[in-house]
Design a protein around this nucleic acid. Structure first.
Length: 298
DNA sequence: CACTTGACCTGTCCGC
DNA sequence: TGCGGACAGGTCAAGT
């Protein structure tokens, strides 16, 4: 999915586009799984309620309504939330939208506002979902109870990352930082990018990392995510923001999807391996550890 | 508990 | 051109 920077980019877009609007109709296409609430609840708590604010926790979006209910949305791998203010502009002009006229084949939910504008939830792979919850119950959702700290908040310190990692001492570090209960928001792209930045091989056991390495990794996770938010996120394939536009972080990526290309730091060829069950990009020559001997370029 | 693997889906790309 | 398999930004349930 969209990882933390992409979800945050969508959040910022929606905050400026839909606050104050009033949903009047929700159309669910194809799979009820995409929006499983009973129609009676949707009618009672969504229709006629005003959008108060758009929040994010981890990779989850929360659209708070004046009915004291919230739309809780997870985009998973291929989800998109695209606002269309004027259908004539959806297919490329004048706002450069990358999506065509909506709804399309991947549209799962169409939300109509009283002013005639629309919010589309598109999701090619149907892993994502939209659910209506009482706002006060959101922190009690299983995922919310288990999810780790927000990495971009000031109170997320290197010491906290070190402590959170203690529960996964025998895992490889990539699996540990992908674990949303350790910390929130890291996915496959930013796991690879931050490990490259910290010069840590993704298959290093957590228990073998020094304090200094974890401190460096903490810094890189934040630096990489902040840069990505600044660039509007990563468009690897499907991701677009709330206006249907792509993000440009991939132009700045150092390893992700750069297999076969030269490492920006040492010039060796970037390799793709499988780690933590995911495609993993690594420079085998400079991602070892500052604590260990540096391999020599072939 | 900690840790790994498969399942959930559709679409695309790559090798035969 | 067609077909099978691997793979794709994330979580969860089930297995060891």
């Amino acid at each position: 999915m969209p990882e933390l920077p992409e979800v945050e980019t969508v959040r910022r877009g929606l905050q400026s586009l839909i606050v104050g609007k009033i949903p009047t109709k929700a159309m669910v296409f194809d799979s009820p799984k995409s929006f499983p609430n009973a129609l009676t609840d949707v009618e009672q708590f969504l229709y006629g309620a005003t959008v108060k604010s758009v929040r994010r926790r981890a990779k989850v979006l929360l659209i708070d309504l004046s009915s004291d209910y919230s739309l809780v949305i997870h985009l998973k791998m291929t989800g998109q939330l695209v606002f269309v203010g004027d259908q004539r502009f959806a297919a490329g002009h004048p706002n450069d939208s990358m999506v065509g006229v909506l709804p399309d084949r991947s549209t799962r939910v169409e939300l109509t506002f009283t002013d005639g504008t629309h919010l589309y939830f598109n999701d090619q792979r149907k892993f994502g979902w939209v659910k209506l919850f009482p706002t006060i119950e959101v922190p009690n959702i299983d995922f919310m109870k288990k999810v780790g700290p927000e990495p971009l908040l000031d109170d997320f310190t290197p010491e906290i990352l070190y402590e959170r990692l203690q529960r996964r001492k025998k895992s490889i570090i990539k699996a540990a930082i992908l674990d949303q209960t350790v910390l929130a928001g890291v996915g496959n792209i930013y796991a690879d990018e931050s490990l490259w930045g910290a010069r840590i091989h993704p298959e290093t056991r957590v228990g073998d990392l020094s304090r200094d390495e974890i401190t460096k990794l903490h810094h890189e996770i934040r630096a990489v995510m902040n840069l990505s938010i600044e660039k509007g996120g990563s468009t690897n394939k499907n991701y677009v923001n709330a206006e249907g536009k792509k993000g440009s972080y991939m132009e700045f990526a150092n390893v992700f999807r750069r297999e076969g290309q030269a490492c920006n730091r040492c010039g060796a060829v970037i390799t793709k391996i499988r780690a933590a069950g995911r495609g993993t990009h690594v420079c085998l020559y400079c991602q070892t550890s500052p604590m260990r001997e540096q391999p020599v370029l072939p």
